[in-house]
Design a binder for these strands. Structure first.
Lengths: 209, 209
DNA sequence: GATTCTCCATAGCGATCGATACGAAACCTG
DNA sequence: CAGGTTTCGTATCGATCGCTATGGAGAATC
């Protein structure tokens, strides 16, 4: 992968790159890529511009590293839900309820960085918008994969379209992200998730939240 | 309301404000409020900066007028669906299927301006983000009102939470807006809408699209 | 025709954008 | 210690941002 910490001499860093990246991630999460200025990043990261550029190359690279960190630290619920040894319906339930929690964590920006990061962008930032779109597409593909696995295991009726349903689930999660950004509480998002679950075929009865 | 066209003398305008506003609206729709620069607006509207500022005050006012125009010209399907003399389920069906069409019109930016316009914003543009949030909240409130009316008419079971369901429907529409932005076709959005409809109580059978 | 009003086009305003040049400082290896 | 290397802090860089000052042009009113 990458050369992790190999200084062959030279002045040591006076800051923690991990903490700095976290601060940048939260700022991008809150304001999006383009609306987050270097001045804001400077203050939130507690660094001078040369420190930022020496450690993270440029703003675009910093944002991509923030995306990767977000993917690793903030949305583990998704991978867990998709890989847990449970029924397909239960997997989707965990996915949506996990999103309800992750999108409305106190002290964190509402919604999902992959949605808020750059839904609309200037022509110069088109590459960033495309990168986020790729993340969203990958999420949808992961859902489709889980649904297909469910069909293969006889867990999900053969009649339903895996791609269509994955697009629905991914769409609901994106919608939850916006609702969270508009101030929806965990409970409200949970109710939304439960409602969305009712569209699933093979309707077993559900229990209280 | 406003003084509509009352020049008591003076040099006449050399451009059509309506067409200029349309061009601005589409640009904001595509790139969002902050990422749309005056240079882009100049080119798209075919105007010089003083022409823009004389006719529309400033960028923020121009954006608000673009929002109003969008509301009037692009999303009439919503009001139609909510006020049509049909069952509640049919009203919601028309709402979602109308969104599928409106969010993926050829030659138009994908999704809804109320979502793409400023989901994330810099602190300076917070007022704009709040305005868009207000539009989204109003849409949700309109849905809730329609659902409440359905309950009052015995059209919708008393048990379901009107607010919760409205949040679900609004959330699905927001999700459709993002899926449309990611390139979803009309058919794909229609399938998403049909899937979302299955979560509605009082499940009458549906017919082909 | 003189006055008055509004809009036109050119040019450029101060502020902020992302990104750097520069030289001193702090660590390693000899 | 000298030599090499990397990061440090300070002070900006050119480009672009939203916006406007200025003076002339074109229309209604008197």
């Amino acid at each position: 992968m990458e050369n992790l910490e190999k200084p062959r001499g030279g002045r040591p860093r006076a800051f923690d790159p991990g903490r700095a990246l976290d601060a940048a991630m939260h700022l991008f999460w809150e304001h999006g890529y383009e609306a987050t200025s270097l001045a804001m990043l400077r203050e939130a990261m507690g660094l001078t511009p040369p420190q930022i550029y020496n450690a993270f190359t440029d703003k675009e690279t910093l944002f991509r590293k923030a995306l990767a960190r977000y993917h690793e630290t903030e949305i583990g619920f998704a991978l867990e839900a998709m890989s847990a040894p449970v029924s397909t319906r239960e997997a989707i339930r965990r996915l949506l309820l996990g999103a309800a929690v992750a999108y409305s964590r106190p002290g964190k920006p509402g919604g999902c960085l992959f949605v808020s990061g750059a839904l609309a962008a200037s022509p110069q930032a088109q590459a960033i918008a495309d990168e986020l779109k790729a993340y969203r597409k990958a999420s949808e593909a992961a859902i489709a994969e889980r649904l297909a696995k469910g069909q293969a295991m006889g867990d999900l009726p053969e009649g339903v379209s895996v791609e269509g349903f994955a697009k629905y689930i991914a769409g609901v999660m994106n919608g939850m992200s916006i609702q969270a950004r508009d101030g929806a509480s965990v409970e409200e998002l949970r109710i939304l998730a439960q409602t969305a679950l009712a569209a699933l075929p093979d309707e077993g009865q559900k229990q209280g939240a």
